[in-house]
C-alpha cells in the first residue's frame, strides 16, 4: 500500500497475470469495467441482487459488485471473455443460440458464467441443479424457460462428446 491508500495487487484475469494499482473502495466490477475495459460483466444492481456482474473467482461464480478490488490479490478471475475456448462455453454458446435463450442479452454473460461453473462441476445436471446454479441470475425478458432448456441441452451435448 502507498501513502494514498492505494495498493498494488497481482491477479490473473482470463489467464493473464496482471499487476494493478487499485483503490480499496473499488469493487471488482469497477476494476473490470472502468479500469480494464472488461465489459461482459454488467452493472445491474450493485448489491448482489441480480447476478448480471457474475464472474468466476478461483473457479466459483460470485457477484463482482460484492467483491472489493483488494480482495482478489493472488486470485484467478475469469469472465466470458476468458471462456471463449472453453468446451463448456462452446456447448452453451451453441445451445443458447439454437434454443433462442437470449433476448436483450444484458443478463446473458452472468448466466453463461454461472452455467459454465455448473457444467464443470456436474456433467449431468438435473433441472434442479440448473435452477440452483442460476437462481442468483435475474432475467426479466425470457421467463427462463429457454435458458433452462439450453443449459440442459449443453450438458447433454458435452456428455455425448466426452
Amino acid at each position: 500500500m502507498n501513502e494514498t491508500g492505494n495498493l498494488k495487487i497481482k491477479f490473473t484475469l482470463n489467464g493473464k497475470p496482471i499487476e494493478y494499482m487499485v483503490k480499496p473502495n473499488w469493487t471488482l466490477l469497477d476494476l473490470l469495467r472502468k479500469e480494464l475495459s472488461v465489459l461482459s460483466p454488467k452493472e445491474g444492481c450493485s448489491r448482489g441482487d441480480c447476478g448480471a456482474c457474475t464472474v468466476l473467482l478461483n473457479g466459483k461464480p460470485v457477484n463482482s459488485c460484492l467483491v472489493l478490488a483488494p480482495q482478489i490479490d493472488g486470485k484467478e478471475i475469469v469472465t466470458v471473455e476468458g471462456l471463449i475456448e472453453d468446451k463448456e462455453f462452446k456447448a452453451l454458446k451453441e445451445t443458447f443460440i439454437e434454443k433462442g435463450a437470449v433476448q436483450c442479452g444484458f443478463c446473458t454473460p452472468g448466466i453463461i458464467v454461472s452455467a459454465v461453473a455448473l457444467l464443470r462441476e456436474k456433467g449431468n445436471p438435473t433441472v434442479q441443479d440448473i435452477e440452483e446454479a442460476l437462481e442468483g441470475n435475474l432475467c426479466r425478458c425470457t421467463g427462463y424457460i429457454r435458458i433452462i432448456e439450453a443449459v440442459k441441452q449443453a450438458a447433454e451435448k458435452l456428455q455425448k462428446t466426452s
Partner: peptide, 12 residues
C-alpha cells in the same frame, strides 16, 4: 436462430 444471439452470448 437469432442473428444477435452469438454476440450476446459472447458478452460483447
Amino acid at each position: 436462430s437469432r442473428p444477435d444471439a452469438l454476440d450476446k452470448v459472447l458478452g460483447r
